[in-house]
Structures are given as C-alpha cells and as structure tokens.
Design a protein around this nucleic acid. Sequence first.
DNA 1: CACAGATGATTTAGGAGAGG
DNA 2: CCTCTCCTAAATCATCTGTG
Length: 322
Amino acid sequence: MKRRHSTISADAKVLEPKQGSKSNRRKLSKSSGRLAGLLSLPMDILFEVFGHLLPIDLLHLARTTKEFRHVLMRRSSISIWRDSFSNVPDLPSFPPDLNEPQWANLLFDSHCHNCLRASVRTVEWRFRVRFCSKCSATKLVAMYEWELEFSPRLVAWRYASKPDTKYPGFKSKQCVYSQDEIDMFVKQVQAFDLEVDRPAYNAYIDARRLAVGNVMNHAKECEEWVVRCTDDRRQELQNIKRERVEAVIERLTELGWGDDISRLLPADSLVSHPLVNKPVPLTDRIWNNIRDQLEDYMEDMRKKRLDSIAFWKGARDVSVNM
DNA sequence: CACAGATGATTTAGGAGAGG
DNA sequence: CCTCTCCTAAATCATCTGTG
C-alpha cells in the first residue's frame, strides 16, 4: 500500500472547517493572535508541545489557519501525530490504509463525513465513515445479495452480518453496502477486458478480497473498542453520580438533616432526586444553587413522615378503644 | 473591565423495551 | 420482525461568576 508523501492529508473533508456560531467566531478573532504566536516557537519546542495534545486537538488546530495546517499536515510532522495518538490508551490498531489525520477524524470527530452535521455518534467502521441518519439513507444502500450485479462473494463488500435495525426501512435479510464503494468497484471491474486480462482481473479480485477481509477484521476491533469505551464511560458517570449523592448527604447532614436522611423511604431516596441524580460533580456553586430546594424537600419528607406516624398512632388508639 | 471557565437550559442522537 | 415511545447522554449555546 503506497502512501502519498506530499502531505498527510489525503482527504480534503478531513480538514473541512467546522461551522462556528457567532460567539465562536468572535472568540477566535480575539485569541487568534496568541495562537499564531505559537508558530514563532522553534520547531523542536513546537513538536514537543503538539505531541502532548490529543489527536482531535491537532485536527482542530490544523483547521484553524493555513499556517497550522501547513505545519501539522506535512509528512515530516508525522511524529507529532504518533506522539499524540500515544496519549490515548487502548486504541484500536492503526489501519494501514488510512493516514493519521484521517484516522483521528474517524475516531474522534463527531461530524458527518458527508454533510458535516455535528453530533453524529454512529461510525460505520466497515466503510470507515461517520454518517448522520439522513446521509446514511442516501450513502448506504440495502440490497438482497441477488440484487448485486456481481457475485457477492466477489464483491465481498463489508455487508452487515445481522439485522441492522438502526436504518429505518432496511429489511433484516438485506445487506448494507456503501454506494460509493459499489460504484468504484463496478467501475474498476468493468475496466478489465476479461478476454485479455483474465489473470490481472483474478489478481485484482484476490487483492480485493484480502483488503476487504482486513478491513472487516479491523472494523470488529473498532466495534469492540467502542463497547469498552461506552462501558468505561458508563462506569465513570455512575461514579460521579455516586460521589454527588455522598457529597449532598454529607452537606445536608452538616445542616442537621442526617437523621431524616436515614429515615427516608426507598422511593423518596435522595439518590433519585432530580437535583442529586446528575452525572456532574457537586461544587460549592452548584450546592448554593440547589441547597434551598433540597432543604425544602427534606422539610416535606419530614412532614410526610410525622404525618404518617400521627396517622398510625391515631389508628392504633382507635383500635385499642374499640 | 475583559476574559476564561462554569453552569444550566435546550436540542439531538441513539439505545432499550413494549406492543402490534 | 418492525415501529414507536421513553429515557439517558452528549452537544451546543447563552448566561453567569470569579479572577487578574
């Protein structure tokens, strides 16, 4: 697999600037002078600094100005990217058919690769693309195998092995293909004159099968990585929530609510209170914002408990007197 | 006073589960 | 199997607050 050497960036879309809000643009213009000053640093220092950034930071930086793009996208800057990737633990293996910015873009940039819509979480690792739901509908096609013009065994092109219910309208027995890749494959196959080029055609198909197999294996690795990341993140959020609950209980206890907290019914537990059950650490400022509401809540719960006690006491007295 | 960072409201994506 | 609804997490943005 030959790599291009002039720049790292093979795909202009990788460097497509993000659409910023007005406030973002204002911020950029105010701080641009300082960022630009970075480039006046000696190269070895610059490499050292950049090497401590995360890949997505490098990508964002390369999108800010032509100068940053020039520095970060040239072949001689590859060590920056390698250092940067080494800052992220537990990544899938580096795919040999992508370059570093493309790989960073696929892994970490959440924009649709087709329309640049933000916040797209679904990556099609088999096709090495991130598409929003709208673009998935146009750029991915669902077909039964027999619908393909060429034998699917030869195309072997990254089809879904199980129902892909995330695409509305796709039938479970259908396979999912990238329209662009089918077009490219068909074009390349049609370029062969099979009367003359049969050996070359066979070699092409063999190479294609091998390449597809490698990408499929790599996609599996990436999907497993996503599962691990999601699990880790879920755990992290649970820990933050738990610590917030503990912090709230501690502060309420300091205010004299400790006894009432221990007597709360499970259904009234602070764990499920909307102001408490949030994956955001409790700061002094947040505490100041929520304290009054939580004290009101504890007051209500105390009243509820005392009313309940009074009710049962009354009921008992009635039954004793009967 | 300007600025950076924190906060909270709102919007959006996507997963889980219920029901046809 | 498919669709719909609900819920959670993430992203975005305007506003607030603390600091120099």
